[in-house]
């Protein structure tokens, strides 16, 4: 590890931009203070972040609609509760009396439906490839048990199109280990074939430092590269069982990313034969999507084109207590960290 830290500290050369695309990577890099250990010639860019941060405002509005107008019990991962919609948030609805239950796992949400047969229970299904199998397992559980009062509101996203969309902003991806534990290494090799380098990384301090150092070393060789630095978890084939399961229940769809915009075919939704579990179909939710016009410049911040304080909303309309863009939603988001610590980290 010391060797890795030394490489990262002593690197001198052309500016190297490494983008992490995983909220937990961002979190750990922040928590471990890794930025401060890097040579000034290495820049870590916090990419699209986590599936919660990039959840679009109209999705939150849909969830609040189900809570308010359809009297559904909303079940959700904890981190989604504070994410603002266009007018409200799940936590505000909860304060106004909506039934909101935080669950650790989507299957717990299905269990809740089983225990409350006279209420409709909706799970807010957000997540990247790592989480989607769990969401599908909940649907499968409800299907197998004949639970009719359970459905999911999908905003599941997939990484490959986002990798393509952001590729020009980085010299090397720090690929999210737990996504690729499911999907395998194929998507990363596809990016390599297009000339984009990357390392697949784990989440502990030594794992992150080693992966970053491998990035630096390989970059100096001049050829595009891909190194799996997390082989104890990530196998080339990924998890065939998870891939098969998700493919059976879900199909690709377009998705809107908060602060970035539409990325075609960067999401998945339930196939129509499972639409009885699709909250959007089941409750015939009206289109909440307002014309997506916002001065929020999250996308430019994420791509390293501007600094947080150059966004017209920063610190004014957009603060950690009232975030507009994805980068302000989580504590470690680029804008949130800049707001709280003034660029010290």
């Amino acid at each position: 590890m010391n060797e890795a830290a030394k490489i990262l500290q002593e690197y001198k050369g052309p500016k190297l931009r490494i983008m992490e695309v995983c909220g937990t990577h961002t979190h750990e890099i922040f928590k471990l203070g890794i930025r401060g250990l890097l040579s000034p010639d290495i820049e870590l860019i916090s990419g699209p972040g986590c599936p919660v941060c990039v959840t679009a405002a109209d999705y939150i509005d849909e969830a609040c609609y189900l809570a308010r107008e359809k009297n559904c019990i909303i079940t959700t991962f904890g981190d989604l509760v504070k994410v603002p919609g266009q007018k409200t948030s799940v936590s505000k609805e909860r304060a106004d009396g909506a039934s909101v239950n935080i669950v650790y796992s989507p299957q717990d949400a299905a269990l809740m439906a089983e225990k409350n047969p006279d209420r409709e229970v909706v799970f807010l299904s957000v997540g990247f490839e790592t989480t989607t199998p769990s969401d599908v397992l909940a649907v499968k559980y409800a299907m197998d048990k004949g639970i009719k009062n359970f459905s999911i509101l999908t905003a599941n996203k997939t990484m490959p199109k986002a990798y393509e969309a952001m590729a020009s902003a980085t010299d090397c991806y720090l690929y999210p280990g737990h996504v690729h534990a499911i999907t395998g290494t194929k998507d990363c090799y596809d990016m390599l074939a297009k000339g984009t380098s990357g390392v697949i990384a784990g989440f502990t301090g030594p794992e992150l430092l080693t992966a970053l150092a491998v990035c630096v070393k390989k970059s100096q060789e001049g050829e595009p590269f891909l190194v799996n630095c997390y082989p104890r978890v990530v196998k080339d084939e990924g998890s065939p069982a998870a891939i098969k399961l998700v493919d059976e229940f879900m199909e690709p769809c377009d998705a809107l990313w908060r602060g970035i915009g539409d990325i075609p075919m960067s999401g998945v939704k339930l196939r129509s034969k499972y639409s009885e579990f699709d909250a959007r179909v089941k409750f015939d939710i009206p289109d909440m999507r307002e014309e997506y016009k916002t001065p929020c410049r999250c996308g430019d911040v994420l791509q390293g084109k501007i600094k947080s304080y150059e966004c017209p909303l920063f610190g004014k309309a957009c603060t950690p207590d009232h975030p507009v863009g994805a980068c302000m939603v989580s504590d470690e988001g680029a804008c949130s960290a800049y707001y709280m610590y003034g660029g010290l980290i």
Partner: peptide, 20 residues
């Protein structure tokens, strides 16, 4: 533990389990 420095995020937020 890796020799870096970081800030403890300030208090005041509701403790919510994270998935990401």
């Amino acid at each position: 533990p890796v020799g870096g420095m970081t800030f403890l995020p300030p208090p005041g937020k509701e403790l919510l389990p994270r998935i990401c």
